[in-house]
Design a binder for these strands. Structure first.
Length: 345
DNA sequence: TAAGCGTGGGG
DNA sequence: TCCCCAAGCTT
C-alpha cells in the first residue's frame, strides 16, 4: 500500500517550492502560456487544453495560434458553423474534440453570458471537458486551488509514492495525492510545473533523476525503481484492415466525395468513397499501383485506390471541384489517398 | 469497465 | 521498421 497523502501534506510546502524554482528556470515558452504578470485568457486556456488532450506539445504548438486567431472568443466560435470548426481542426485528430469545443462555445455564450466558468465543477459539465481539463482550466485560467492529474502528473506521483499498480485502472487514486500538493499563490504555475516536470524530467522511459527537483523525496528513486514505474499494462493488439477507395471524376472533372457519419471515426469529415475489398460496385475500375497505409489508434488500414466510374451513381456522395478541396475538412487519410492518386490536396 | 477515438514524433 | 506514446473524454 502507498503511504497516505499525509506524507505529502507534510512535505507539500517544500515540494511546491522546489518544483516552482525548477519550473521558473526550465520551463518552455509555449504559445498558450500567459505572459508573466498578465492575466490568462480563459478561452485560450480552454482551447489549448482541449487541443492538448492526447496530442503532443509539438503538434499543438504549430496549430494553436492560427486556430485561436480564427476563433478568438467563445462568441466567435458559437457564431461559426460546426463545419468551420472541423475545417480548422483538420489533421489534429480525435475530431470529437472539435464538436465538443463548438458545443462548449455555444453553451458558454447562451448559458454563461459568454464567460468561461471559473470553477472546476461547472467546467466539468461542459461537453468534452472531464476531470483533468476542468481542473487544468480552473487552476491555470482562474488560479483555483486544484491540481489536475494528467498522464504526466500521474507518472510523477506514481514514482514519488512508488505506486505500483497500473495507472489505467488506478489513476483516480492519485487525485488525493495531487490535492495534497495544492496551496501557495501560484496554482496555475504549480499545475503546469507538474506537467512540465513529467514532460521534461520524469519521462516515461529514461527519467532524468539526476536533475529532478524532487529526487530528494522520490520513493521510486530511493528504491531504484524509477524506470520500472509506473507499472505498464499489456497493449491491445492492433488489427489489420483493408479497404478500396474510389477516385471518381464526373464529366466536369469534379471529384466524388462523401461525408462520414456524425458519430464515430472521423465523424463528419469528408472522404473518398470506400468499400471493403471485393465490394466494389459494378463499374469500370482501374487499380493504381501500390497502397496507402494509415494507422489509427485501434487498427491499421491498408487502402488500394481505384479510378474509374460506377455504373450507378453512389447514393450518399456528392461532386466537388478538385481545385477547391481546401474548402473541405479532410482527414489525413483522405489527403494521403488523394496525394497517392496525384491529386493536389 | 473497457473500448473507441487520430496523428506525428522519437527511440 | 516498429513500438511507444501524448496536457483524456465518452459511452
Amino acid at each position: 500500500m502507498p503511504p497516505p497523502p499525509a506524507v505529502l501534506t507534510a512535505a507539500a510546502t517544500r515540494l511546491r517550492r522546489t518544483l516552482l524554482e525548477w519550473y521558473d528556470r526550465a520551463k518552455r515558452t509555449l504559445p498558450w502560456r500567459a505572459t508573466p504578470g498578465v492575466a490568462a485568457d480563459p478561452w485560450a486556456v480552454l482551447v489549448s487544453e482541449i487541443m492538448l488532450q492526447q496530442t503532443t506539445v509539438a503538434t499543438v504548438q504549430a496549430r494553436f495560434d492560427p486556430f485561436l486567431a480564427r476563433f478568438p472568443t467563445p462568441a466567435a466560435m458559437a457564431e461559426a458553423a460546426l463545419d468551420d470548426v472541423l475545417h480548422a481542426w483538420q489533421g489534429l485528430g480525435y475530431y470529437r474534440r472539435a464538436r465538443g469545443l463548438h458545443a462548449c462555445a455555444r453553451t458558454i455564450v447562451h448559458g454563461h453570458a459568454g464567460q468561461v466558468p471559473d470553477e472546476s465543477e461547472a467546467l466539468a459539465k461542459l461537453p468534452g471537458i472531464g476531470p483533468y481539463t476542468a481542473a487544468a482550466v480552473a487552476a491555470i485560467a482562474f488560479g483555483q486551488q486544484v491540481v489536475p492529474v494528467d498522464g504526466n502528473v500521474a507518472r510523477v506521483l506514481a514514482r514519488l509514492i512508488a505506486h505500483d499498480r497500473p495507472l489505467s485502472a488506478t489513476k483516480a487514486e492519485l487525485w488525493p495525492y495531487a490535492a495534497a500538493l495544492a496551496g501557495g499563490d501560484r496554482p496555475g504555475d504549480l499545475a503546469q510545473a507538474l506537467m512540465e516536470l513529467g514532460a521534461l524530467v520524469c519521462t516515461p522511459r529514461q527519467p532524468a533523476c539526476g536533475i529532478c527537483p524532487w529526487a530528494f523525496a522520490c520513493r521510486a528513486r530511493a528504491e531504484g525503481r524509477a524506470t520500472a514505474l509506473p507499472v505498464k499494462v499489456a497493449k491491445r493488439s492492433r488489427p489489420e484492415r483493408r479497404a478500396v477507395a474510389m477516385l471518381i471524376r464526373d464529366d466536369r472533372g469534379r471529384l466524388c466525395l462523401r461525408r462520414r457519419p456524425e458519430d464515430g471515426l472521423l465523424g463528419g469529415l469528408i472522404e473518398l468513397p470506400a468499400v471493403d475489398p471485393g465490394e466494389l460496385p459494378p463499374g469500370d475500375w482501374q487499380a493504381l499501383p501500390g497502397t496507402v497505409r494509415h494507422v489509427f489508434t485501434h487498427f491499421s488500414l491498408e487502402t488500394t485506390v481505384v479510378t474509374g466510374r460506377p455504373v450507378e451513381a453512389l447514393g450518399d456522395a456528392f461532386f466537388h471541384p478538385a481545385d477547391r478541396l481546401h474548402e473541405l475538412a479532410l482527414p489525413t487519410l483522405t489527403r494521403k489517398l488523394l496525394r497517392h492518386a496525384g491529386v493536389a490536396a
